[in-house]
Design a protein around this nucleic acid. Structure first.
Lengths: 142, 142
DNA sequence: CCACAAATGATACAAAGTATCAGTTGCGGG
DNA sequence: CCCGCAACTGATACTTTGTATCATTTGTGG
């Protein structure tokens, strides 16, 4: 099988994990969905593609991807299912309307100064970050 | 009853909600815990104080406090129960070691410039934000 | 192509969160 | 001070989300 692997799939292989149908399907669901997606939605979409893929494997894969920093769970609504975000390559920030849950994306964050300062202060090596702003969007403000 | 209400309790009253034993107990648990706390821990600690307080009321209160921006659900570990953070007054940020899950807190973020810029650009009114850095801590880097 | 560890799907289970509803309680008005 | 009512509660039963287990299958290095 000489199929071309996406960068993310490669990251998984490099970390010593096997390329399986379950994992590729979950990855595909994320890449096609583009944005935020709850575990429930992942379950549904994976089932739509291949209903033989087990529930447990999907959760295992979500866990794996989280550990590999391929996705990151985040919170948008209240106390409920997490929403997973595909981490593109370092940057991915949101402005979330707390009224209608619309998500606006932006990437011109300017955190490198702060990041360096924190690295120095705490002796830590930073590899990524998540920045979310909450507010009321134009439409809801009316 | 002329008991002094905390600022947060007052915010609740001002929004038209009643001061009840269940709510005050949950608030007290948060204020005494100081930091991150999962719903499970809230359940346990509330039960330790007053075991007559019902499960459902606690979840209702978590929901209410989230809507009132008294607390904010956040994600620290992998795909699991959210961890609630008492919002002190606007700021509360984390550096999370992706290896050992240690959490370092800091609050000298300097996002007001960026926030203003985004407000202008997207015509949105921002009310809060969440900033998390991920990396490898000193201890794990060895 | 073989062998074996890694991963899977099925099943059954545990935990987290929610709907419902009759009973209780905080609180504003008299 | 107490009355009345809407808001809130606790109990129960339920749905949903996530996990442990285990026999079977599959990817991959040799």
């Amino acid at each position: 099988m000489t199929e071309q692997l996406s960068k993310r799939a490669r990251r998984m292989v490099d970390a010593g994990y096997k390329v399986t149908k379950a994992r590729m399907t979950v990855l595909r669901v994320f890449e096609e969905s583009g944005g935020h997606i709850t575990s429930k939605e992942v379950l549904e979409r994976v089932a739509a593609i291949d209903e033989n893929i087990g529930r447990a494997s999907i959760f295992r894969t979500l866990d794996l991807f989280t550990r590999l920093a391929i996705i990151r769970p985040t919170y948008i609504e209240t106390s409920m299912t997490p929403s997973y975000v595909l981490l593109p390559d370092g940057h991915h920030h949101h402005i979330i309307c707390t009224n209608c849950d619309q998500v606006i994306e932006f990437d011109n964050c300017d955190l490198s100064d702060l990041a360096h300062q924190l690295e120095a202060e705490y002796g830590i090596e930073l590899t990524g970050h998540l920045l979310e702003f909450y507010g009321i969007c134009k439409t809801c403000a009316v």
